[in-house]
């Protein structure tokens, strides 16, 4: 019985795998999408508790994803922008598009990620 579900939208397979591994170990159900378009599909299918959203991705990037998703219609889902793009302007733009938080992923260890997800699940 899984605690709850997390949707990872990330084009870098190495990172997808490690996040999946780390979060699965905590009992979360993990769905992965390689870009925003797949992300929207899975979001509507599973209504995850947390979405980890990268910005730079092919097909549909993180910005475009948020433009296409009215996050207000998903009150039970937390949208965390999890990216290596450090630009105050972009961060603000993502918040304006409905993100709950913007995090620089290069600063996060696996333990940190667990802590972050727990914050939103509880």
């Amino acid at each position: 019985m899984s605690k709850t579900s997390v949707l990872i939208i990330e084009d870098e397979i190495l990172l997808q795998d490690v996040y999946k591994l780390v979060l699965s170990s905590q009992g979360y159900t993990i769905y992965t999408a390689n870009n925003g378009q797949e992300g929207i599909h899975l979001l509507n299918l599973y209504m995850p508790k947390v979405v980890l959203l990268d910005i730079f991705m092919p097909v549909m990037d993180g910005k475009e994803f948020l433009r296409n998703v009215d996050t207000a219609l998903y009150p039970d889902t937390n949208f965390i922008v999890y990216s290596n793009l450090t630009d105050d302007g972009v961060a603000q733009e993502m918040m304006n598009l409905g993100a709950d938080r913007v995090i620089l992923k290069s600063t996060m260890t696996p333990q940190d990620l667990i802590g972050l997800i727990e914050e939103y699940v509880n």
Partner: peptide, 11 residues
């Protein structure tokens, strides 16, 4: 890439 390294070493 460095982030990936960090995650795996972190594991």
């Amino acid at each position: 890439p460095a982030t990936a390294v960090k995650q795996y070493l972190g594991l």
